[in-house]
Design a protein around this nucleic acid. Structure first.
Length: 341
DNA sequence: AATTTCCCCAACCGCGAAGTT
DNA sequence: TAACTTCGCGGTTGGGGAAAT
């Protein structure tokens, strides 16, 4: 069955909408509603295809659209929901009144995704970027021996045949030679081990609060003080959060089906991350704490002393700072993480 | 002040699902 | 049940403004 075009492309206008076109569309919908998008532009006197009209209405002209910057509460909700749902922008948008899927998608791609990458977090899996952490570990141990290193062979052994990793390795090696700091990474590991018990306590607190996302979102302290906050939406149970016809009933076990939804090209850029850990480092199946000190690949560290999400900040840097404190993965400064972004 | 580069976001495209005939 | 239509979603693009040089 061939796919039919949504409309006759000939003679139809594309590109930015003019105020006149907006006016026509608003007027028509206010008078007649938007029953059939295919016939709407003709009836409204617009030289546009129905699809373009629907998009313009739903993403821009709808009266309940909320414009302006995303609040921190909204951002938190987006991150939380994305960690569970992946790129289900329409579902995420349904939880943020006044925000469109397109707006959320754009905000994710231009702000949140970059911030997570800066922090060494894979924005797809919400887990530490193990490609960076693995490489750090590999190079550290290899450099410690100060033998001649064949990076390509080294990476090949670990199935990390990725030009970007080679680039990073080269960059790292170059910087390493300049600094001649042989103990840098080992020192980092030691520091992480020292704080592991502290981190474990924090994980246990976080684990409890993150185990039930709907409850956690509902209880955001910052939200309760804002009458008009988008956080006034509440999730009294999992069924309310999820559209049950779209998502499996064993929602708490989402990592399994989320894995299925991962892009097929993920492995082109990333070493697979164990799916059972969210980016707090929790094993979502067994509910045991993932101890960073026990992981040979993880320089994972949490500096968050307050797992609640009540905070205020006024700019991007402060959001960065907040997120960095919440989730801290120690990528050595010598890595030029920007090369990966 | 002029030019280049970077970044954001509105809009488009293609696909699959759902609905209709 | 097949053929076709319509809708909605997610990925991607490119124009325009901001920032950097």
């Amino acid at each position: 069955m061939g796919r039919s075009p949504c409309c006759d492309k000939n003679g139809l206008k594309k590109g930015p909408w003019t105020p006149e076109e907006d006016h026509k569309l608003i007027d028509y919908i206010q008078k007649h509603g938007y029953g059939n998008w295919r016939t709407l532009p003709k009836n409204a006197g617009l030289q546009r295809c129905g699809k373009s009209c629907r998009l313009r209405w739903t993403n821009y002209l709808r009266p309940d659209i909320k414009r302006g910057k995303f609040s921190f509460e909204e951002e938190e909700i987006i991150i939380q929901l994305h960690s569970m749902l992946g790129n289900k922008w329409s579902v995420i948008a349904a939880r943020l009144p006044g925000r469109t899927d397109n707006e959320i998608k754009n905000y994710w791609n231009t702000h949140i995704r970059k911030r997570l990458l800066r922090m060494g977090i894979d924005p797809v899996t919400h887990s530490p970027r193990l490609d960076l952490l693995n490489l750090s570990s590999i190079l550290s141990s290899s450099l410690y021996n100060q033998s001649q290193i064949n990076i390509s062979r080294l990476l090949g052994v670990n199935s990390l045949v990725n030009p970007e990793l080679l680039k990073l390795a080269t960059s790292f090696m170059s910087s390493r030679r300049q600094n001649q700091n042989q103990n840098f990474l080992l020192t980092n590991v030691d520091e992480n081990q020292l704080c592991s018990s502290h981190v474990q306590n924090q994980y246990q607190q976080l684990m409890q609060s993150s185990h039930d996302l709907p409850t956690q979102v509902q209880q955001l302290p910052a939200c309760s003080s804002l009458n008009t906050s988008p956080c006034s939406i509440t999730f009294s149970n999992e069924a309310e959060l999820m559209n049950m016809d779209q998502f499996p009933s064993n929602f708490s076990d989402f990592s399994d089906w989320q894995g299925d939804a991962l892009p097929s090209n993920l492995t082109e850029d990333y070493v697979p991350v164990p799916p059972n850990y969210d980016y707090y480092g929790f094993d979502q199946h067994s509910q045991t704490v993932m101890d960073p000190s026990l992981s040979d690949t993880s320089n994972f560290q949490s500096n968050n002393s307050n797992p609640s999400f009540g905070f205020t900040a006024s700019n991007e840097d402060e959001r960065d700072s907040y997120c960095s404190n919440l989730l801290k993965f120690e990528i050595p400064d010598l890595f030029d993480v920007n090369d990966f972004m």
